[in-house]
């Protein structure tokens, strides 16, 4: 299993529901946890990753803060629409350090992965890094 940070897969965020220009969604895919994307209020919140080509994904690891419930959807189309659900997970709350959750995607093939944060432990949540095992 290879742990790839997203830049090497040509992945980038194409849609995000919130934006603070000091904490843009590109911070999710830069491979570092010190920079982050922050939600700016209310739920659900979502972001969509696009891969350069269809990619088989065995698991993703999400580094975040105050995320409570996350749903993941995928598609294999060129467009960021018509998603099918893959999995969902309830995260444990952490204090003083990031949440880090590995989520199995069973080798699903995807050109887009959609991450929907349906609830949080606070008004605002942050996502620091998504990495992919393929």
């Amino acid at each position: 299993m290879i742990d790839s940070f997203l830049p090497s897969l040509g992945a980038k965020v194409v849609v995000a529901s919130s934006s603070d220009e000091n904490h843009p969604p590109e911070n999710i895919t830069d491979g570092h946890t010190n920079k982050f994307w922050m939600s700016t209020g209310m739920f659900p919140q979502e972001f969509i990753l696009r891969f350069a080509e269809p990619t088989n994904i065995s698991a993703v690891t999400v580094d975040s803060y105050n995320v409570k419930h996350l749903k993941i959807e995928r598609n294999t189309s060129q467009n960021a629409n018509q998603f099918e659900s893959v999995t969902e997970k309830e995260f444990q709350q952490t204090e003083g350090h990031l949440q880090s959750n590995a989520i199995s995607l069973n080798g699903s093939s995807a050109t887009h992965l959609r991450f929907i944060i349906t609830s949080g432990y606070d008004h605002f949540v942050s996502v620091h890094r998504v990495s992919v095992q393929n």
Binding site: T33, M38, T40, G41, L98
Partner: peptide, 19 residues
């Protein structure tokens, strides 16, 4: 009040340790 809360939370997140 909401704006200050956001700034406070952002500060907290900036100072977090890794997971």
């Amino acid at each position: 009040a909401y704006h200050s809360l956001y700034q406070e939370r952002r500060e907290t997140i900036q100072n977090l340790g890794p997971g």
